[in-house]
Computed example of a mutant assay.
Amino acid sequence: MGGTEHLTVQREGATLVLTLNRPEARNALSLPMLVGLYDGWLEADADDSVRSIVFTGAGGSFCSGMDLKALAGNGMAGEEYRDRLKADPDLHWKAMLRHHRPRKPVIAAVEGYCVAGGTEMLQGTDIRVAGESATFGLFEVRRGLFPIGGSTVRLPRQIPRTHALEMLLTGRPYTAREAAAIGLVGHVVPDGTALARALEIAEQINSCGPLAVEAVKASVYETADMSESDGLAAELTRGQPVFGTADAKEGARAFAEKRPPVYKRA
């Protein structure tokens, strides 16, 4: 199991938990964090025993975004990982889910700060749980910067455009309740319980047929920009093969026999 000094990887049953682990800097992005995160996404997809991913942060924060001190020229932690970026100049965007989409469902468990790059990475996740005191926002314009992690493209597709533009252009913070009201997150829970709730959702996903789950996720994303007729045709192409799998037969058999199904990804 992988990980770095700023990214921990743990197993919780069939769920891989990736934790940003730089709490002294509110989990601001670092080279070891980005390298570990990208390796974690790859590990999850390569291991068929992993059925879901929970993405969270240590120390009461999710991620406060880019390390502005490093950007100002004070150096970024983990320079020994620089060769990984040289070998793959796109690695940081893949780590941040801008240029990579895991085939397994990704559930975000957010406590504390989830701002700037944190809110940008959040948009690459599938299901989102936030603690009551979590803070969201795209602060880049306040620093004269551009939210280049994908937000000008993704955010207006995920929430109403008027809310997306307000978040992008004001750079103001949003509470968890505000984030839920505009559809950025799906659940608001008591502080300190976001991870537990995310793991509960993950377990519900894990109990379903993995081939079906992955096909459903793929269909949702690949048809998002299609016309309805093209999307429906693509859905048949993606969905019909699922019905011919051994897992589909097992699901029907288990229902008839009134027992939990045993799926084998076959």
Results as ranks from 00 to 15, higher is better:
1 M>L: 14
6 H>F: 05
10 Q>R: 13
12 E>R: 14
17 V>T: 04
18 L>A: 12
20 L>I: 06
21 N>Q: 03
21 N>E: 03
22 R>S: 03
32 P>H: 05
32 P>D: 04
32 P>V: 00
33 M>Y: 00
33 M>I: 01
36 G>V: 03
41 W>V: 04
41 W>K: 03
43 E>M: 09
46 A>M: 01
50 V>T: 11
52 S>T: 13
53 I>P: 07
53 I>M: 06
53 I>R: 09
54 V>G: 05
55 F>K: 02
58 A>V: 00
59 G>S: 09
62 F>W: 02
63 C>R: 08
67 D>K: 09
68 L>R: 14
68 L>M: 15
70 A>I: 10
78 G>Q: 03
78 G>T: 03
80 E>Q: 13
81 Y>G: 10
82 R>C: 00
85 L>Q: 03
86 K>Y: 08
88 D>N: 15
97 L>F: 03
99 H>N: 15
100 H>M: 09
102 P>M: 09
104 K>T: 12
108 A>R: 01
110 V>T: 03
110 V>D: 07
113 Y>V: 10
113 Y>R: 11
116 A>E: 03
119 T>D: 01
123 Q>E: 15
128 R>H: 06
131 G>V: 03
135 T>N: 02
135 T>C: 11
137 G>A: 06
140 E>K: 00
140 E>M: 06
141 V>I: 13
142 R>M: 14
145 L>A: 14
146 F>I: 15
148 I>M: 07
148 I>Y: 12
148 I>G: 14
149 G>E: 11
150 G>L: 06
151 S>C: 04
153 V>L: 11
153 V>P: 02
159 I>K: 08
160 P>N: 04
161 R>W: 08
162 T>Q: 07
164 A>V: 04
166 E>I: 04
166 E>A: 05
169 L>T: 04
170 T>Q: 01
171 G>C: 10
172 R>W: 05
172 R>D: 13
173 P>K: 01
175 T>M: 07
175 T>A: 11
175 T>D: 06
176 A>P: 14
181 A>C: 04
183 G>Q: 11
187 H>R: 12
191 D>A: 15
193 T>I: 02
195 L>G: 00
203 E>I: 12
204 Q>V: 08
205 I>V: 15
208 C>V: 05
210 P>E: 03
212 A>S: 13
215 A>T: 15
216 V>H: 09
218 A>H: 15
220 V>Q: 10
221 Y>K: 09
221 Y>V: 09
226 M>G: 12
228 E>C: 02
232 L>Y: 01
233 A>F: 13
233 A>T: 12
233 A>P: 00
235 E>H: 07
238 R>L: 14
240 Q>I: 15
240 Q>H: 10
241 P>Y: 11
242 V>H: 05
244 G>C: 08
246 A>G: 10
248 A>V: 06
250 E>H: 10
252 A>G: 05
253 R>Y: 00
253 R>I: 04
254 A>M: 08
256 A>C: 09
257 E>D: 15
259 R>Y: 11
259 R>V: 11
263 Y>R: 01
